[in-house]
Design a protein around this nucleic acid. Structure first.
Length: 572
DNA sequence: TACTGGTGCGCG
DNA sequence: AAAGCGCGCACCAGTA
């Protein structure tokens, strides 16, 4: 009997899906012609042997499978992995990847209407990654070769697996959706803004705030939504601000300030997450945002549409589990400094991080006097603060935690010099732009003007702050992906619940089992049947511990979770 | 009418 | 108008 294929590569030939089965040596064993209709059941059959599915881009392939009720365990997302390998400083064989520019493809958004998914024609103008079978196989070979030659293939393999798992999770999060109670959302809006206006007017409380602002400005026609006009009105009223930002307004003692800040708050809520947002984004009790894995240079996810990663805390009460289900809401306390301690092998910082609150740990160690100062100093160290309270406090941190601080200081120096830095698993920062390099070059010439030098120095420092933060933010993203991927595996092993407990709005794959419902950098929400909550909580915690070991081995760093079980996602 | 850039603010 | 990183989105104004 033939060995079960390790990889199954999916691609299209003359528009129809074809599968190429590869053995452990990467040799093709067999080729199977399929159709879009037959693909899901064929994949489901093959999934039993646990292959890694290789495809151009998880979004189009996996979204269709999920809609047909088929889940897979592992994949290799060529588009995402291409971007990592192409830029990674650990990869020696990058030129051939760079030459394959057709794989530098932007993510394509998948439409939501599941019924029409299979009818979609890729020729609809979207420019995604190539999905022809030959091109797909060729790119997979290139990536395998690049990996084999890499200076630390083990780390990169972890990164590619985590990134690809993220691609699966993003599609699954969208398919399952975040349980969203439109009626609760409406109650929150009504309480804060006033009744939803029937016509074109403003909600009552917003109108009231606007009236008070105009009265205090002595300008009944003042425009509150146009920054230049508002600025002029403020100046006429004697409020000499340079901008209309909340921060600057709050510095001034004038009766217009309070109502104006209130108006801006209400206006923001209405325009970003008001009734129009609910109408557009919440359907059938679910908010289904479009996640963009790897959408940020550091490896963090981005989102597109719906402002999925910017849901205001005020509206967390609208996130409500289905009847008989609950939410497990968990986030990591101070993820980035913990990751920094582990990367730098800084045992003193790791000691301060032990237990719950890292900032208090720093205070207890005697390095800094108050929790607030410890927080400001540490953020300043990771972001590159040079002035203000933060800038003043950083040197104390440097004395107390020299290893950790040396890591970020080195990253900043490399960035200022035009170099490339990398995360723990090997995602590298982009090289400086040609404009940046030109500016540094010009400033170093004998005839450089003072302005040239000033600009070059500013740009160098800007880039230094970017690379300083890149290593920490990017490694934190790797930890979070590992946590998610591990948790996803644990949840998939739980037995499904009985039909009476199913929640069809989560889609065919997730209606009968605990599933991830939300992810935001260092926070996850799991939607689970009530009677599974204990095992889910254990899974969330075990996955966090496991992610720490996967990245940092036996280095003694804790990743404690703030975890709550509740019908809503409210945070305190 | 469609675009781009600036501003401001939500999230981590 | 943040200091000090990374994003997305709404809105307005200016321009093509």
């Amino acid at each position: 009997m033939a060995e079960a294929p390790l990889w199954i590569v999916l691609g299209r030939v003359d528009g129809a899906p074809v599968a190429a089965l590869l053995d452990s040596a990467g040799e093709e064993q067999e080729r199977v012609s399929l159709s879009d209709d037959r693909l899901p059941s064929w994949v489901a059959d093959r999934e039993a042997a646990g292959p890694r599915w290789v495809w151009s881009d998880a979004t189009p392939w996996y979204t269709r499978l999920l809609a047909a009720g088929v889940r897979v365990g592992r994949c290799h997302d060529l588009r995402l992995c291409h971007a990592i390998l192409r830029d990674s400083a650990l990869v020696v064989e990058a030129p051939s990847l760079r030459a394959a520019a057709e794989w530098d493809a932007a993510p394509v958004a998948e439409v939501e209407e599941t019924a029409t998914l299979f009818a979609l024609d890729d020729a609809g103008g979207a420019t995604g990654a190539p999905d022809g079978l030959d091109e797909t196989l060729e790119e997979f070979r290139r990536q395998r070769a690049a990996l084999a030659e890499a200076s630390d293939p083990g780390r990169l393999r972890l990164l590619l697996a985590a990134e690809s798992a993220g691609a699966l999770i993003a599609a699954e999060l969208q398919a399952a959706g975040l349980p969203w109670d439109a009626a609760a959302h409406d109650r929150i809006l009504t309480e804060i803004l006033g009744e939803r206006p029937a016509g074109g007017g403003l909600p009552a409380r917003m109108q009231d705030a606007a009236d008070r602002v105009r009265r205090e400005l002595g300008d009944p026609a003042a425009s509150l939504d146009s920054q230049p006009k508002l600025l002029r009105s403020l100046h006429r009223a004697g409020v000499l601000v340079e901008s209309t930002s909340r921060w600057e307004l709050a510095q001034h003692d004038h009766p217009v300030v309070a109502p104006l800040i209130e108006y801006k708050k209400l206006s923001r809520l209405l325009s970003a997450n008001g009734w129009a947002w609910v109408d557009e984004w919440v359907h059938d009790g679910r908010f289904r945002p479009v996640y963009v894995p790897g959408g940020v240079v550091t490896g963090r996810w981005a989102s597109s549409g719906g402002g999925a990663l910017q849901i205001p805390r005020q509206l967390r009460g609208a996130v409500r589990s289905d009847p008989g289900w609950v939410l497990v809401v968990a986030d990591v306390a101070q993820l980035e400094p913990r990751v920094l301690a582990a990367m730098a092998r800084d045992e003193k910082l790791a000691d301060a991080a032990r237990g719950r609150d890292l900032y208090s740990g720093i205070v207890d160690s005697g390095a800094i006097d108050t929790r607030q100062h410890a927080k400001v100093a540490l953020l300043g160290a990771m972001y590159g603060a040079t002035t203000g309270e933060s800038g003043r406090l950083v040197p104390r941190l440097r004395r107390a935690y020299p290893r950790a601080m040396a890591l970020v200081d080195d990253a900043a120096r490399v960035g200022e010099e035009g170099g490339v830095v990398s995360t723990w698993l090997g995602r590298s920062s982009p090289a400086p732009s040609s404009g940046w390099r030109d500016s540094q070059l010009r400033a170093s010439e004998a005839e450089a003007s003072g302005a040239d030098e000033t600009r070059a120095r500013r740009w160098a420092r800007d880039r230094g702050r970017f690379t300083r933060n890149f290593v920490v933010q990017g490694t934190a993203a790797e930890w979070a992906l590992s946590w998610l991927a591990d948790l996803r595996g644990r949840l998939a092993e739980l037995p499904p619940v009985t039909e009476a407990q199913t929640s069809p709005r989560s889609g065919p794959v997730f209606e009968a089992r605990p599933h991830l419902a939300f992810f935001l950098h260092d926070e996850i929400i799991v939607h689970t049947p009530e009677d599974r909550v204990d095992v889910v909580v254990d899974a969330v915690r075990d996955a966090a511990a496991s992610a720490g070991r996967l990245l940092f081995g036996s280095f003694p760093i804790d990743f404690p979770l703030d975890l709550k079980v509740s019908r809503t996602a409210v945070k305190d």
